[in-house]
Nucleic acid binder design. Structure first.
Length: 1057
RNA sequence: GGGCCCGUAGCAUAGCCAGGUGGUGCGCCCGGCUGAUAACCGGGAGGUCGUGAGUCCGAAUCUCACCGGGCCCA
């Protein structure tokens, strides 16, 4: 053990600890220590390699690290491989930007090979940056050997999984409407669409009914560019529709529209008046044919037979008639299949009209909008704008469109029920994350479009013959190499695209050009991280995962993608327990985002307070599943508590070292059970703190098992602050100062050491640096070098004494009340008082105060602490006449009665009235009743009161010469100690000192009994107490003059060598 | 528009599932302590428990509606 001179400096402590971990390879040693323990298979949700971490990312890893450290200490062999998500559009977009590209054509011109090399380099570089940031948080995952979605072994797992899907007949090629990003020129999954408000045209258009003059169907749309692809109009079969005759600009028209909406539609179209000429339910309109208003601009439209079709999804909004373009909408597409409509999609991958788009060919859909509006001419009966939520590509943030294209799907809608059943098998924290939230999401799943028309990703291992159109799925590189007869050097594009397979039909199979949706990458993480299918043993031994934890946004993301892929491949969920955590928000409860400029960087907080404080803050500030509102004050508060912990730790060290203290040990190892032999001989406060540390251990253990990290961390923080620092340390300080060897001092050392060692174990998962630093200094030479090589210590329930803890709570309350009463009586705590009386009717309070009498006297600095029943018999009850009652009863005698009441003996009168309801006063024998008197409680002179729970505390603040003397003595001692400190003396140094008093009376009081004691207390070998004329003239190291209760005191101190 | 979660003093939170005087921390004001000291302790003020209705003898807690925030979806 060594003294710790400096106060807590987070970065100094943490840097030295991290350096120590690195130098001694502690993480590897911990892994090797737990190698043979029961396995705990954790899968790290892979962060995307953006190159920076934000508060939410930090929180995520801190949660993981704390839980994993807890399990390691319990002896579990924790599989803790970190993971990174390294493919996909965000990186492509970054690289495109760096190269100044705007379209896919630019990339193709540049060359896919060089392009993906840049992507790879970007991902690898950022992975390393992020690993460094995670390490600085104290996170112990295997960052030296993370799973990486771009690695060969990882890609092998993805290929294997697709083959499994094919075997299970869950892989399907389909011509379907998908979310499409025109900028990225690729399909994107439902999970990749972000919705926010956007302004679009809002138009009402009339479609001429075939064979009728001036008769029209009216539809509404926000996407004019889909009108060239219109095939049908949908009506609700049971809605009522009307044909109205309306006039505009003198011309009569017949318009079909839903009955309830007719008026608003006609007003929008500025029709002067209208008249209903016919009514029909929707089903009777079905089959009605109409023509496209754009047929002169889109020739193909002339050949299409447009008709009215029924659909349940039609609502009574706008016109009640819905424009259907099966090539441009999901509902439209499904309806098209059912009604055998043509799937017409005249828009290409970049969002431009094809030749089929007629006049609009070459225009982007956005640019086509105004042209189409012009071309509609009189068919456009109203145009406006609408602000609505619209989908955008979550990678490039551009608005998406819907396009019917050929894509590859996993038909997860087939296994919906199976997935729902698996969700119920998983243990969710909190429970509703699974039973409500995830369940509701999976209930609605559609088939998963896994193909993307991009470059940087896992190539989809499907080879197809351009001649006979048959295709084969490659389940492994070996399979491909065997069939193609060529080695596969890199499974990425463009290298893999060069590999061809001979087709039985005589053709040459080529790979389809698509890559996987990146969600498919991470979906296979739980087996890819075990190097499955390349290696089989670990998978058999560990899979499925014991635990994963991610943010609530991952419900639709990783929780789902893993479940889908795993249910297909293995028929079950790939995880057993899932903690869904919240989002990091700013102090106003808003989402942190770059555009709002309210991002909090973990690095800033670490620079100021250190990683341990950040960890404890995020873990204690809110329940893991609630959103975390970041609050700087909260961080400061945690920092204060950590600082106190440091002070609590360094305070006893000088004394322990001075006394050559050695903790109880067995074979050189500290013995956690070592105090049991002397437990019954320990003082109350010792047994209490031992009980408390076990109670806290119990709470921490139970809370951690239940993912209640906030409860666990708060219990520890409050133990440090309230129990250890504010109470136990204060109580045992006098014992530490004893000069001679004494059992009570030794016991205080033992107990404090025990509590600190236990606390370190509890706190290690939460704050791994500071605890490691403290452990390094407290450990015995034969013990492991690192705290993290120690086992978790389970609470010892035999040591927990609920009754004692309850009694101590009462004493703490008493302590507060005494301080309050003293404050009223203006008597400082340093000045002893003669007596404290606690008036109570609560037997528990009485028992606590009697039982812990010594502590009460010590804390109150009182000669006596007595317990009384209520009312305290020295309370003076001053009778106060109630004239409103007395007046009417006694009439003109009232003044006389008033005086009699005021002069009556209060205690007697109160007791009599309470017992009999009336009392007789004076020679005239006036009969007084309860309602005519109230009693004012007054205390004996010099007593001051303060309330505590179920009791009142009375403190006698009167000074006697004896008390006064001690008070002055304490004041002088304190100032001499202050001077020792100013001189920077060590605890063991001796001094010579002189105290000169301006007041002869006080001098006389002190001289007699206190001079020696003052000298001893301040470790003065030579000590003089004097009056001014007698002060010795000599030179001192330090001289001070003080004003103590109106007496001038000169103190002089020199160090004695 | 739908699902889930959250809304308690200036700020952050406990209590809510199993209804019965609303706790705690920070900040603020006042005081104290000083052999942990660029620390620490006590006291005080401060609350329509988002709003409104309902159930009940009794609602922060249960129910419904609405408002605000978050995540997800359409």
């Amino acid at each position: 053990m060594e003294k710790v001179e400096s106060s807590y400096n987070a970065n100094e402590v943490e840097e030295s600890v991290q350096e120590f971990w690195k130098r001694e390879d502690i993480y590897a040693r911990v892994r090797s220590l737990r190698r043979n323990g029961p396995p705990f298979f954790f899968v790290d949700g892979p962060p995307y390699t953006t190159g920076y971490i934000h508060l939410g990312t930090a929180w995520n890893k801190i949660l993981k690290d704390t839980i994993l450290r807890f399990h390691r200490m319990q002896g579990r062999h924790v599989l803790d491989r970190a993971g990174y998500d390294m493919h996909g559009l965000p990186i492509e977009v970054k690289v495109e930007h760096a190269l100044g590209f705007t379209t896919k054509k630019d990339i193709e011109a540049y060359g896919i090979g060089p392009f993906i090399e840049q992507c790879r380099e970007f991902a690898l570089r950022n992975k390393d940056i992020m690993s460094g940031q995670f390490r600085r948080l104290g996170v112990w995952l295997d960052f030296d050997n993370p799973y990486q979605t771009l690695s060969r072994e990882y890609i092998a797992a993805a290929w294997w999984t697709l083959k499994r899907a094919e075997e299970e007949q869950k892989l399907e090629k389909g011509y379907r409407v998908v979310n499409w990003c025109p900028r990225c020129e690729t399909a994107i999954a439902d999970a990749e669409v972000e919705y926010w408000e956007a302004t679009d045209p809002s138009i009402f258009v009339k479609f001429p009914v075939e064979g009728k003059k001036n008769e029209y169907l009216i539809i509404w749309t926000t996407t004019p560019w889909t009108l060239p692809a219109n095939i049908a109009v949908a009506v609700h079969p049971s809605f009522l529709y009307v044909r109205v005759s309306a006039k505009k600009d003198g011309r009569e028209e017949f318009l079909w529209v839903a009955d309830d909406l007719a008026e608003s539609v006609l007003r929008k179209g500025r029709y002067q008046n209208y008249e209903i000429t016919e009514r029909k339910v929707g089903s009777d309109l079905v089959g009605l044919e109409y023509r496209s208003p754009l047929e002169q601009f889109v020739p193909i439209q002339k050949n299409i037979i447009h008709r009215v079709v029924p659909a349940d999804f039609v609502t009574l909004e706008n016109t009640g008639m819905v424009h259907i373009a099966p090539g441009h909408g999901w509902d439209d597409y499904l309806l098209g299949l059912r009604e055998h409509l043509e799937i017409f999609c005249p828009v290409d991958g970049s969002g431009h009209f094809t030749r089929e788009g007629g006049k609009y060919a070459g225009l982007s859909v956005k640019d086509a909008n105004p042209v189409i509006l012009d071309d509609l001419g009189a068919s456009l009966i109203s145009r406006g704008e609408v602000v609505h939520r619209y989908g955008h590509c979550w990678r490039c943030k551009k608005p998406i469109i819907f396009r019917a294209t050929e894509q590859w799907f996993l038909t997860v809608s087939d296994i919906r029920e199976q997935m729902l059943a698996q969700i119920a098998e998983v243990k969710w924290f909190p429970e509703w994350a699974g039973s409500a939230r995830f369940h509701d999401w999976v209930k609605e799943v559609r088939d998963w479009c896994i193909s993307r028309q991009r470059f940087w990703g896992i190539p989809i291992p499907i080879w197809q013959c351009p001649e006979c159109h048959s295709y084969r799925v490659m389940g492994s590189f070996e399979e491909l190499e065997a069939l193609s007869g060529a080695p596969l050097l890199d499974p990425h594009r463009p290298y893999v695209d060069m590999v061809t397979i001979p087709c039985p039909c005589g053709g040459s199979m080529r790979r389809v050009e698509d890559i996987f949706d990146v969600w498919f990458d991470s979906a296979v993480a739980s087996w890819a991280t075990l190097k499955f299918p390349g290696v089989r043993e670990e998978f058999d031994q560990y899979w499925p995962a014991d635990f994963i934890t991610e943010g609530q946004d991952q419900t639709r993301g990783w929780f789902y993608s893993q479940l889908g892929a795993s249910t297909i491949a293995f028929g079950r969920a790939p995880y057993r327990r899932v903690l869904m955590h919240g989002f990091a928000l700013d102090a106003e409860g808003r989402k942190m985002s770059k555009s709002l400029g309210n991002m909090v960087s973990p690095e800033e907080i670490i620079a100021q307070f250190g990683a341990d404080v950040l960890r404890l803050y995020v873990l204690s500030a809110s329940a893991p599943w609630d959103d975390l509102k970041f609050n700087q004050e909260g961080v400061k508060t945690v920092n204060r508590t950590v600082n106190i912990l440091w002070n609590v730790y360094r305070f006893p060290l000088p004394y322990m070292i001075l006394d050559r203290f050695t903790p109880v040990s067995q074979e050189g190892l500290w013995d956690p059970e070592g105090l049991s032999a002397i437990h019954s001989r320990l003082s109350d406060e010792d047994r209490w703190i031992l009980s408390r540390i076990n109670s806290v251990a119990q709470e921490v253990e139970v809370s951690l098992q239940d993912c209640q990290l906030h409860h666990a961390s708060r219990a520890i923080l409050s133990f440090i602050l309230d129990d250890l620092s504010r109470w136990y340390i204060q109580l045992i300080r006098p014992r530490m100062w004893l000069e001679e060897a004494a059992a009570e001092k030794e016991q205080a050392y033992q107990c404090l050491y025990h509590v600190l060692r236990r606390l370190l174990v509890l706190l290690a998962p939460f704050a791994p640096h500071i605890t490691e630093k403290m452990y390094g200094n407290l450990r015995l030479p034969a013990e492991p070098e690192s705290l993290h090589l120690q086992d978790w210590i389970h609470p010892n329930e035999r040591i927990i004494d609920q009754e004692l803890e309850g009694m101590m709570r009462t004493v703490m309350a008493f302590d507060d009340a005494v301080a309050a009463a003293r404050q009223v009586g203006r008597r400082k705590l340093r000045w002893p008082v003669a007596e404290c009386v606690v008036a109570t009717e609560n037997p528990e309070v009485r028992k606590a105060l009697m039982h812990l009498h010594r502590l009460c006297r010590l804390r109150a600095n009182s000669r006596k602490v007595n317990v009384s029943s209520v009312p305290w018999d020295r309370i003076i009850w001053k009778p106060v006449p109630v004239m409103k009652e007395i007046g009417p009863v006694f009439g003109k005698d009232a003044p006389r009665v008033k005086i009699l009441v005021e002069q009556a003996e209060g205690a007697w009168l109160k007791k009599t009235l309470e017992a009999e309801g009336h009392a007789i006063l004076g020679e005239q024998r006036y009969e007084i009743t309860s309602s005519q008197v109230t009693f004012q409680e007054t205390m004996p002179d010099n007593f001051f009161a303060a309330p505590m729970k179920d009791a009142t505390v009375y403190v006698d603040c009167r000074l006697t010469p004896e008390l006064e003397t001690e008070g002055y003595a304490r004041e002088i001692i304190r100032r001499l100690q202050e001077m020792r400190r100013q001189l920077d003396l060590r605890v063991e140094d001796f001094i010579t000192a002189e105290v000169t008093l301006s007041d002869a009376r006080v001098y006389a009081l002190l001289k007699e009994e206190w001079a020696d004691l003052i000298g001893r207390e301040v470790r003065a070998s030579i000590f003089h107490l004097s009056l001014p004329p007698n002060a010795r003239e000599r030179s001192w190291n330090l001289q001070n003059e003080w004003d103590i209760e109106e007496i001038t005191v000169r103190t002089s101190v020199s160090r004695l060598d």
